[in-house]
């Protein structure tokens, strides 16, 4: 005769997040989707400037290994007042590097609420959902929401026309997360 294993209360699923600031607003991103955090200074001089009028949020591109990484200004992406950015988040499994003003802190979220259905525009692509931390509602960004496939295609075509010089190759160094 076998007895069933004693029931264990399931652990609350938690997720490590990074709270970062763009313009005056605070956003959260899963720390698992951030590959590296770098200072803007470490990229100074090397990235190639992009001036695509239909994509004002993308200002620079640099080469990392085989891939072009596009630097998206977080404030412009979210339609906020642009402010001097100091850090770049290199996102994992993505060709996006996110330009942000600063990191507030790393913390843990225990609950991710779906974005209410009343939000029916681009924010549904931008955010995975909302989380509540210290009685504050913080949007949790989706790493895939910064550049669509069409936008990447457009940028790739633009960069191939411009030609990316060797000086834009950036090594894998900086502050790993």
């Amino acid at each position: 005769m076998q007895f069933a294993a004693p029931h264990k209360a399931p652990h609350a699923r938690t997720e490590q997040i990074i709270l970062f600031r763009c313009s005056t607003q605070v956003f959260a991103i899963s720390s698992g989707s951030v590959h590296e955090v770098r200072s803007v200074d470490t990229l100074a001089g090397s990235p190639l400037e992009i001036n695509e009028p239909t994509l004002p949020k993308v200002g620079h591109v640099f080469r990392r290994g085989e891939q072009n990484l596009y630097v998206v200004n977080g404030a412009v992406h979210f339609g906020l007042r642009p402010s001097p950015a100091s850090l770049i988040l290199l996102l994992r499994r993505s060709r996006t590097a996110l330009l942000i003003d600063g990191i507030e802190k790393m913390t843990t979220m225990t609950r991710l609420q779906a974005l209410p259905a009343a939000f029916c525009n681009e924010e549904r692509v931008w955010y995975r959902g909302l989380t509540v931390l210290d009685q504050n509602v913080i949007p949790v960004v989706s790493p895939e929401g910064f550049l669509t496939t069409d936008e990447l295609f457009l940028l790739d075509a633009l960069v191939s026309r411009m030609g990316l010089p060797e000086s834009t190759v950036v090594s894998e160094m900086g502050l790993g997360v």
């Binding site: 607003q25 956003f27 979210f78 339609g79 906020l80 209410p116 009343a118 939000f119 029916c120 525009n121 681009e122 924010e123 931008w126 909302l130 509540v132 009685q135 509602v137 913080i138 949007p139």
Partner: peptide, 13 residues
């Protein structure tokens, strides 16, 4: 927080 739905002012808890 940043969004593009004009009719929505924000959220309450």
């Amino acid at each position: 927080f940043a969004h593009r739905t004009m009719e929505i002012d924000g959220v309450i808890l």
